[in-house]
């Protein structure tokens, strides 16, 4: 069962000292060579590389799931051992995309500062904030009070405030836009009213005189009606939506895996 694992550890054994540096340098040279070689390929071959890379990356998890596994509790096949490593690789590869965002931010705001465009002072503040936070975090780390306070008192509070503003807007928008003009709007309103009243103590107080259990009257308590609406009416409706979403996600997943998806990214010529 673990033949692949043994083969890989023989082919790629851990190296230390000079051997390690040689391996890294050789790999880097190979990367650079490969970079220039694949650039020479015609567009059709380039597309084949992209399609192949996508397919084989997806094949790992798909095969690991579909291939028969050993009996429980082990429940593994010959690919299972590699799942943690592939998972880490996926994490690392995702992390490498960070530089794209940071580069865009620096390019846009750096240009604002250098060309002294209107409100360039804001760009200075943005770049300064970014550098201070990164240096405080990477330099002094979480053990320094400066970094902890910068995170907790400044960043976390600002983040909370940005989203809290939505509370004002949602009240204003609901008041202006929520006009009951159709059966659908009425149902939506009634549902929102009953569900929310049933969730809050002020609403629960309205029917608090009714028995909590042991009587049919308990069914009329707002908290029970609210819970009933959520579990018996809302649950099947959201389940039906999630079935639709699930089928859609499966279709999109397949199309991405097999490079059948259309659009600017997928149909652009590999030139």
């Amino acid at each position: 069962m673990d033949w692949l694992q043994r083969l890989l550890s023989r082919l790629f054994p851990p190296l230390h000292g000079t051997g390690f540096y040689i391996a890294i340098i050789v790999c880097l040279i190979l990367f650079v060579a490969l970079f220039f070689v694949i650039q020479l390929l015609p567009p059709k071959a380039r597309k084949m590389i992209i399609v192949g890379a996508t397919f084989f990356a997806g094949l790992f998890y798909a095969a690991e799931f579909f291939l028969p596994a050993s009996p429980k509790p082990k429940d593994e096949n010959f690919l299972t051992f590699a799942v943690p490593t592939v998972a880490n690789f996926q994490n690392v590869l995702t992390a490498f995309t960070l530089g794209l965002g940071i580069y865009s931010l620096v390019r846009v705001h750096g240009s604002n500062v250098l060309k002294q465009k209107p409100n360039w002072e804001n760009s200075v503040v943005l770049l300064g904030g970014m550098i201070v936070m990164a240096v405080a975090g990477l330099g002094w780390g979480e053990k320094s009070l400066f970094y902890r306070s910068l995170f907790r008192d400044v960043l976390a509070n600002f983040d909370g405030a940005m989203f809290a503003i939505l509370a004002f807007f949602i009240i204003s928008a609901a008041y202006r836009a929520f006009r009951i003009r159709s059966a659908e709007a009425t149902l939506l309103m009634v549902s929102a009213l009953v569900v929310m009243l049933g969730q809050i103590p002020i609403g629960q107080f309205i029917t608090s005189g009714l028995p909590e259990n042991g009587s049919y009257l308990s069914l009329l308590r707002l908290d029970n009606i609210s819970n009933w609406l959520l579990t018996t009416v809302n649950a099947p409706a959201t389940r039906a939506i999630s079935f639709g979403l699930g089928i859609g996600a499966l279709a999109i997943g397949l199309r991405l895996w097999l490079s059948l998806e259309r659009g600017a990214y997928f149909e652009a010529k590999a030139e």
Binding site: A53, T54, A57, G58, Y61, L93, L250, L256, Y265
Partner: peptide, 19 residues
């Protein structure tokens, strides 16, 4: 065009889990 190789690997890894 080469950036699409890396993006493809990420998309492949994600879509392979969909089953």
């Amino acid at each position: 065009w080469m950036s699409r190789i890396s993006i493809g690997v990420l998309l492949g890894l994600l879509s392979g889990q969909i089953f």
